[in-house]
Amino acid sequence: MDPNEIKMMIENGMSNTLVNVDGDGTHFDALIVSTEFEGKSLIERHKLVYSVLGDAMKERIHALSLKTYTPEQWENHK
């Protein structure tokens, strides 16, 4: 699976979201900055991303490492 395809799925499935995905075809690392994460716990954030990826998460993606930030957290992190 192309990392770009994952990037597109997340960007299309969530609003106000910036995504960067690296990967080797089965293992991926995603960095996601989104206003949709505001007020959400880490579990809720990851579940949101998993729900956007749907069946791809079960079948085509073997492993996806997630880093999730709100825009404010990302500003402080940089």
């Binding site: 880490l42 579990i43 990851h46 579940k47 998993y50 490492s65």
Partner: peptide, 25 residues
């Protein structure tokens, strides 16, 4: 857990998270 990946950590009956979340915490 309604969570698609392994590993999964539970503490005191509560789902804590997978590898990324455990690492962050």
């Amino acid at each position: 857990s309604n969570w698609p990946t392994i590993p999964q950590l539970y503490v005191n009956g509560e789902f804590v998270g997978g590898c990324d979340i455990c690492t962050e915490l």
